[in-house]
């Protein structure tokens, strides 16, 4: 799997950046959300979310259905721009640049912050084209064959598809399709990959493969994953963010911290109730 670590530097997995009290060192933050409020028409869906996403770490969003975790995730690469009634207020700073402003083109944001969706959605094209398309439209100038192979290897799919690159991506199994979607996201060389419940439509074996893959990708990418599965969050993430609904049915961020802390010693009673299965 070490075919390509490119010139990116891995911070390693040392705990030195984790301060006492289960927080990450804010000097290594890649994405900063401040006072995020999201409306759909007159519906106030998410209220006052502030969060730091640490670089080259896996952050998991957990919480009950309808609490706004996917909505927040989709703000990070401006996917909510595609929903006509959506309005996103607040600040999203990515690598020191405010991106939640009309001055920043969402097309550029999405190249740097890739996304993998809940339902595997490969293009109805060949496996090769699925990976190459994103690179091609963004003007990739290197050797495309090499690039496609590199992305497929990084997504741990190369060995399974190397003899059928010309076949349709739709012909793969669900788990393979989802890894193809990850390869497709890697093809634009993003810094950050957002995953919206990537394993919820997959069987346990495929789910495990995706989780292992995320651990490998962590060295080179920052990963934010929404999951309904708390064991998955516990297994795969470094930071866990718990969302819930307040009394006005708005999604709020209850608590965030290192996964170890959230799952063993959360500060908030609601977090504890949720992870111990007493609620949600």
């Amino acid at each position: 799997m070490s075919t390509d670590t490119q010139e990116r530097t891995s911070p390693g997995r040392s705990n030195s950046v984790i301060k006492d009290g289960g927080e990450f060192d804010t000097s290594d933050t890649i994405i900063q959300l401040r006072d995020l409020n999201i409306h759909y028409g007159s519906f106030h869906a998410v209220a006052d979310v502030s969060l730091d996403v640490p670089r080259n770490r896996i952050t998991a969003f957990i919480g009950p259905s309808g609490c706004g975790k996917s909505t927040v995730l989709r703000c990070i690469n401006r996917m909510n721009d595609l929903v006509p009634s959506a309005r996103v207020d607040g600040s999203i700073v990515y690598s020191g640049v405010e991106i939640n402003t009309p001055k920043v083109d969402p097309v550029e944001v999405r190249r740097r912050i890739g996304m993998v969706f809940q339902k595997p959605n490969p293009f109805p094209k060949s496996i090769y084209e699925n990976v190459a398309w994103g690179a091609k439209i963004n003007g990739y100038r290197g050797d495309m064959d090499e690039h496609v192979e590199r992305c497929l290897r990084q997504a741990a799919l190369w060995d399974e598809v190397k003899d059928k690159l010309k076949e349709s991506g739709m012909a793969l199994s669900g788990g393979q399709q989802q890894r193809l979607c990850i390869a497709r996201a890697l093809a634009t060389e993003p810094d950050v990959i957002l995953l919206d419940e990537p394993a919820s439509a997959l069987d346990p074996i495929s789910t495990l493969k995706i989780e292992e893959l995320l651990r490998e990708l962590e060295a080179n990418y920052t990963i934010v994953i929404v999951t309904h599965n708390m064991q998955q969050a516990a297994r795969v993430s470094d930071q866990t963010v718990f969302y819930s609904l307040n009394e006005r049915r708005q999604g709020v961020l209850v608590e965030s911290g290192t996964t170890a802390k959230i799952f063993t010693n959360p500060d908030d009673q609601r977090t504890e109730d949720y992870i111990t299965g007493r609620f949600g």
Binding site: R110, N121, G134
Partner: peptide, 15 residues
């Protein structure tokens, strides 16, 4: 045309 197909394409930075 399914929304998922559009989202996938927008998601890799397509105009």
């Amino acid at each position: 045309v399914p929304l998922g197909l559009r989202q996938a394409a927008y998601g890799v930075g397509a105009t």
